[in-house]
């Protein structure tokens, strides 16, 4: 009797197998649909930041040694919460993501609010949320040139004075929500990215 019951139970279970498989397949489809819908509506900002990092990496790789060029970075909604920063191979304070290479990262954070002596805070921001791309060159610099005022330049021969713009170079480039033009140069040992900013620097920022 017990044996027959056991056999009957096993038979019942076998009858359920197709339904279970169909249910599992349906669940997989629902999960796929869910992921697609989630991707459709969420994380747009992060996806765009990641895509921007990919485009910058592609641009750098497309440059040959000794070449330089200007290129456009297309902004996106929320881009002003992200910044571009780079670390050389031997530089301290690099994010772990860079391992032993030079790297360029797009990280979440407002660059203008970061304090000076900021290697650590930049690193922290990139560790929290950042997309890094590694490069085999020894040195990487990602900087912006800001206009801080004008300097009086006196010609010693004529004694005439003229004004020339006073510029400072600051670490990192804050992204914009529209377009920005960035100049890029590449040599065997170094990658340089420079942005001529029209915004004045924050007192706290690391500029020199």
């Amino acid at each position: 009797m017990r044996m027959r019951n056991r056999m009957k139970k096993r038979g019942d279970l076998r009858e359920q197998v197709p339904e279970i498989i169909i249910a599992v397949l349906c669940l997989i489809l629902i999960v796929i649909a869910g992921v697609m819908i989630y991707k459709l509506f969420a994380n747009q900002e992060e996806e765009n930041a990641k895509k921007t990092a990919d485009i910058i990496e592609g641009r750098i790789n497309a440059l040959k040694d000794g070449q330089s060029n200007n290129f456009i970075v297309q902004g996106f909604k929320g881009a002003d919460n992200w910044f571009l920063v780079g670390w050389s191979k031997t530089e301290d304070g690099r994010p772990d993501k860079c391992f032993f290479d030079s790297c360029i990262c797009i990280c979440k954070g407002d660059l203008s609010r970061l304090k000076s002596g900021q290697d650590e805070s930049l690193n922290n921001k990139c560790t929290d949320l950042g997309f890094c791309r590694k490069f085999s060159v020894d040195k990487v610099s990602v900087e912006r040139e800001v206009l801080v005022g004008s300097l009086k330049d006196i010609n010693p021969e004529t004694g005439q004075s003229s004004e020339k713009p006073e510029k400072r170079i600051c670490t990192g480039i804050g992204l914009k929500q529209n377009l920005m033009q960035i100049s890029m140069s590449k040599s065997k040992d170094e990658i340089k990215i420079l942005y001529e900013s029209d915004e004045p620097p924050n007192d706290n920022q690391a500029c020199f």
Binding site: Q44, E47, N48, K51, T52, I55, I72, V73, Q74, G75, F76, K77, Q177, N178, L179, M180, Q181
Partner: peptide
């Protein structure tokens, strides 16, 4: 023209994906 001078004159924020 696709350059920052032209497009930034008109658009403050660009939506969508690059």
């Amino acid at each position: 023209p696709y350059n920052f001078e032209s497009i930034n004159q008109i658009c403050s924020v660009i939506e969508g994906n690059p």
